[in-house]
């Protein structure tokens, strides 16, 4: 069902949702950049159209809304683990197709991989509704088309945000009542079919063990500083670490959390007793690259990377993941010619 909303009607729509949904979207966090007097676009609660910032890419992805950076798994009180309750209000997230696809990539890990569904992920994820932001032009640093992540069929409501009007396509009936007095107008969402940035992704099977030991990774040993920003800004990075901390004065009480982890960050592979794998940062870059474009695909039949380009946007060393993938492809091509 399509609608055409004025800015006021959109605000009223948001208003009506507030009782049943928490709405999140990209918003300006003024003065919240790492450098002084800089801002950052982050996912925040949206109450009015003016809260939204649609002209710039968000620094972090929306994943933190349903996969919290740090989450309490349970508390040991009187020796028995107690799982904290969560706010079970539904969550509507305004996101672009790349991020919508990224959630699909997270779903594969948390809901499909291994014998169990991830309890904590699932209970939040079930509440998530997709408010798709039409993204027909992308940003300069995106390569979603190369990753087949430029389109999606998954949305509950899709929006085209124009200057004076917002066109709406409602797929999920649960949102119809919130728009019932709005003027109808057929609307079909568009997608982007060409990015300025293009990435050539090798086919599964083209990557051989030779490419693991290739010298192309050495460059990253010299350049990467293992800060982990590429991991924390990535909408598909799903790794975490389980952590325990004592709670209160009584030693027998404790709290178990999980917190995001990143394969570029020191300590990711540390084992009890001191052994560490992938000590060099080039090896970490190789590990991440293979995971994003090769290993995950072998396991789940799709690329993990959705080409949102955030890793390229946030790297303080100006390392480009897009260029890295292309370099790997070049090496494979060169190998074929030999």
């Amino acid at each position: 069902m399509g609608y055409q909303l004025s800015r006021e009607q959109f605000d009223r729509f948001l208003d009506r949702l507030q009782d049943d949904y928490r709405v999140f979207g990209p918003a300006l966090d003024s003065d919240k950049g790492a450098f002084s007097d800089t801002d950052r676009i982050t996912y925040k609660n949206i109450r009015r159209l003016d809260d939204l910032e649609l002209n710039r890419k968000s620094y972090f992805s929306p994943k933190e809304i349903f996969f919290p950076i740090r989450e309490t798994l349970f508390r040991f009180c009187e020796g028995e683990p107690t799982v904290p309750q969560i706010d079970d209000k539904k969550i509507a997230i305004l996101l672009r197709p790349c991020d919508s696809n990224a959630i699909d990539r997270l779903d594969a890990i948390f809901l499909e991989n291994g014998p169990f569904e991830d309890f904590y992920y699932k209970r939040r994820r079930e509440n998530v509704r997709f408010f798709l932001i039409e993204c027909a032009t992308g940003f300069d640093s995106c390569w979603c088309v190369s990753m087949n992540a430029n389109t999606t069929k998954r949305w509950d409501v899709a929006f085209r945000f124009g200057e004076d009007e917002i066109l709406v396509d409602v797929k999920s009936e649960e949102f119809l009542p919130y728009l019932d007095d709005c003027p109808q107008k057929p609307f079909e969402i568009r997608f982007i079919y060409e990015n300025t940035k293009k990435v050539r992704v090798p086919e599964v099977g083209e990557v051989t063990l030779d490419h693991f030991a290739h010298e192309l990774w050495n460059e990253y040993t010299a350049r990467c500083i293992a800060c982990g920003r590429c991991n924390t800004s990535c909408p598909t990075c799903s790794c975490f670490t389980v952590l325990d901390a004592p709670l209160g004065a009584e030693k027998k009480m404790g709290e178990r959390w999980r917190a995001w982890a990143g394969c570029h960050i020191d300590g990711f592979t540390d084992m009890a007793g001191g052994h560490t794998f992938r000590q060099s940062r080039g090896e970490r870059m190789r590990f991440k690259t293979m995971h994003k474009i090769n290993d995950y695909r072998k396991r789940f039949g799709k690329h993990q990377c959705v080409g949102c380009g955030r890793c390229d946007d946030v790297c303080p060393q100006y390392i480009s993941f897009a260029r890295c993938i292309n370099t790997l492809s070049d090496c494979i091509e060169e190998g074929k010619r030999k």
Partner: peptide, 18 residues
Amino acid sequence: LCTVEPVYDASRCIACSA
């Protein structure tokens, strides 16, 4: 000397120690 007081939010911390 221009300074800044850091504001820490543990709920966003991944204990990376950076």
